[in-house]
Computed example of a mutant assay.
Amino acid sequence: MNAQPLRIGIAGLNGRVGRLLAQEVVAGGGVLAGGTTRDGAPVAGIDCPVYSDISQLAHHCDVVIDFTHVSTVVAHGAALAASGTAWVLGTTGLSAAEQQAVDAAAGRVAVVQAANFSPGVTLVTRLARQMGAALPGSDYDAEILEMHHRQKVDAPSGTALAMGRAVAEGRGIKLEDHIESGRDGHTGPRADGAIGFAALRGGQIVGEHSVIFTSTHEQISLTHRSFDRRVYATGAVRAAHWLRTRRPALYDMEDVLGLKSVAE
């Protein structure tokens, strides 16, 4: 007997990514079980139940995809854990306390958490970790350059920080102890072993990220460009289906893509 279609809910149904997620859920063979908006009002062009409360949505879903705001993370984690609903989380910029709430939820339900659900970004981030391990900070300066649309309110982007964190993990250090961001004025020479960030904003760029390693004798660059936000929606729906048979734990897109079974 065939398994029942996966019931997927979308937190923030009326957002730019939320609307794309609604389309991709149906295209991927899932059931769009509902969504949330701040006031519970229906979303034009999307035919599904709409709720103002995440707990109401959770009881009708096998998994909820969540690209909302950092201020909702603690409440969403508690609600989904209480209902036994799996969670695909793309919200970035979490504090330590908010991350603890995600970790706590992952003790009760399966969670995929990622700064970016693009398969290409996932691979670039993995390579950044491997390059960080192979190219020591004493010889190779690591810089991360990102550019986004003019409406983006945070910098560096969550994806850029994830790439920087991957470089730091490869080098066996903490990003927070080596980050250089927002250089301006007379800053003095670059610190040895620093991981630098530069953020550009303009137009309607969906997302561009480059990880650059430079030594005295050579330079290596990894670049990823997103042309359409749909790539994030497609990846998140893929993660939702992957979660169907997983036990409670915290996963990421490397798990979804099967990369962690590949020997380093």
Rank of each mutant, 00 (worst) to 15 (best):
T85Q: 08
S181D: 09
H178N: 02
A96S: 13
R171G: 02
D62R: 01
A96N: 12
T37Q: 13
I54H: 07
G203C: 13
L200K: 04
A97H: 15
V121F: 03
R183Q: 13
L200I: 03
A106H: 00
Y51V: 09
I212S: 06
D192K: 03
Q113N: 14
D154V: 14
H217I: 14
A22D: 02
V25N: 05
G28V: 06
V31Y: 09
G203P: 03
Y140A: 02
T223P: 01
E146T: 04
A79Q: 02
L161G: 11
R238W: 04
N116V: 11
L123N: 09
L145Q: 11
G196V: 08
S215P: 14
G90C: 08
M163A: 15
A114K: 03
D139E: 14
D255N: 15
A199E: 00
G35P: 05
L145W: 07
G258F: 05
H148W: 11
T36H: 03
E208Q: 15
V111A: 11
A194G: 08
Q113E: 08
A114N: 04
Q204M: 12
R230T: 05
I46S: 02
C48K: 14
F213P: 04
A33F: 09
V88Y: 02
V74L: 14
M1R: 10
R201D: 13
S118T: 06
V31F: 12
V211M: 07
V124K: 01
R150G: 09
D53S: 01
Y232S: 14
E254T: 07
S138A: 08
A249V: 12
L123C: 02
V25Q: 08
P5N: 05
R108V: 00
D184A: 13
G172D: 03
Q219F: 03
D255A: 15
F227A: 12
G9T: 00
A198W: 04
T92M: 03
A128T: 09
G164N: 03
S71L: 14
G196S: 11
G77K: 14
I195Y: 00
A79N: 03
V124Y: 00
R38L: 12
G258D: 12
H59A: 14
S118D: 13
V206P: 00
I173W: 03
L32F: 14
L222V: 04
R38D: 06
V17C: 05
S221V: 07
G45L: 15
G132R: 00
P189K: 03
T36F: 07
S118M: 04
E176I: 12
A233R: 07
G34C: 04
S138P: 10
V262S: 00
S221P: 05
G137D: 12
R238L: 10
C61M: 05
V88E: 00
R201H: 15
D66K: 07
E208Y: 07
H224N: 11
T122A: 07
D177L: 00
R244K: 15
T92A: 01
L259S: 04
G18P: 14
G170V: 06
V167N: 05
V70W: 05
G77R: 13
G18S: 15
R183E: 14
S95W: 07
A168R: 04
V262L: 01
E98K: 11
R150P: 02
V17Y: 01
A101M: 13
A58S: 11
T91P: 11
R129N: 04
A239C: 09
A3Q: 06
Q99N: 05
R225S: 12
G107N: 00
